[in-house]
Simulated assay, not measured.
Amino acid sequence: MARPGGRWLSGRHEWTERPLAISTGRVALPLARRGITVEGIEGSPLMLEQLRARAGGADIPVVLGDMADVAVDGPYDLAYLVFNTFFNLPDQDRQVDCFVNVGRVLAPGGRFVVEAFIQDLTEFDRNQRVTTRAIDEDSVSMEFLQHDPVAQAVTYQRVTFDAAGTTLRPLGLRYCWPSELDLMARLAGMRLRERWDFWDRTPVHRRQPSPRLGLRAGPGGYGRRMTEPTHLVTATMRQEPGEGLRHPQAYLFARKP
């Protein structure tokens, strides 16, 4: 999350916030340190263990479960899903479930913030792509992608070959178009309130370069690549040459009063 976005999310200290897929708390912990009541949902016991090990992490109530089920009662003033996590839900049905269940626990006028990229279809050749991510005299790291345009699904396999053998890191995403997210919100009794190109509320432009979202740990300097570990406090955009670029955007949906 960008620092301007962090200020925006934390601008109402009386809010109760529910991050879905709280992970290691890299957004939730800074908000909690500002005095905001934060509760979370996390599907991975290992991620939850890392959150508990961090300063203040043990103080945040977290439900272990599927973020699409939103197995909490509410009401909450704000729920959020950042870092493209919404696209980790495997199909359209589960993505709709997530919106509907968030709408169920939001207070009247409550808000649901989603950060997600716009998939760049030009990065595929015959619905596939092979990229060399890193290479030296001892190892090579590659990325293999297959695209299903009907299911709007991308299957990744990030592979490292070195003296120790072959390491596989699979990933699957089901992306959505902006209009599809808007429709899911309507099905959940919400409406689109704002759509930004970045957390500083930059307006969405049709013909600007597609930036890649990178992260940094504090003010100054340029963003690191997303593959690097980071203690998230702020974010910046950076284009990484040689990689298929996606367009991150922020969406703010509000429950109807």
Rank of each mutant, 00 (worst) to 15 (best):
L106H: 09
E123V: 04
W15P: 00
L20K: 00
R201F: 05
P257G: 11
T160D: 03
F144N: 04
F83P: 04
D59A: 04
P203F: 11
W15R: 09
D93P: 03
G35E: 07
L215D: 03
P203H: 02
M184L: 05
M142K: 09
V113T: 04
F112W: 03
V27K: 11
A250R: 14
G214I: 08
T85K: 07
S210P: 05
G223L: 05
R12Q: 14
A107Y: 03
E39P: 00
T236I: 12
I135R: 14
A254W: 03
L46E: 15
V140D: 03
I36W: 14
L89I: 08
E115Q: 04
D182V: 02
G103M: 13
R26V: 14
G103N: 09
H205F: 13
V204G: 13
G221M: 09
G223E: 00
V159H: 05
L187N: 09
E14F: 02
V159T: 12
I118P: 02
L9V: 12
T85P: 12
T167Q: 13
D138G: 13
T37I: 10
L232R: 12
A254C: 05
P241Y: 15
A163I: 13
R212V: 13
Y251G: 02
E143I: 07
L232V: 08
G214R: 14
T230M: 01
V38C: 01
N84W: 07
L173A: 00
P149E: 03
R216D: 01
V140I: 10
D66H: 14
R207M: 02
L183I: 00
R169A: 10
M237T: 15
F124P: 00
E123A: 05
G6Q: 15
Q50M: 01
A79S: 15
G35P: 05
A28E: 01
A107I: 11
W15V: 04
E240L: 04
F144M: 12
D73I: 02
Y156H: 15
G11T: 15
G43A: 08
F117A: 03
P178D: 04
A68L: 07
P241M: 13
Q208L: 07
S23I: 02
Q152S: 10
W15C: 07
M237C: 14
E194K: 05
R224H: 07
A21F: 09
T202I: 05
G165S: 05
P4W: 08
R186W: 02
A235M: 14
F198I: 09
W196M: 15
V113W: 06
G103Q: 01
G220F: 03
V38R: 03
T155I: 08
T85S: 04
P45K: 00
E194T: 01
P229E: 10
R158L: 04
R52A: 11
D69E: 13
D66I: 02
Q92K: 04
R104V: 01
V130R: 13
H247L: 15
E240R: 11
D73H: 08
G25Q: 06
R133H: 02
H231C: 13
Q119L: 15
V96H: 06
R169E: 13
A235K: 12
R7N: 08
L46M: 08
G189Q: 06
G110R: 10
G57C: 11
V102N: 00
L29R: 07
G103P: 04
R206M: 11
R34V: 06
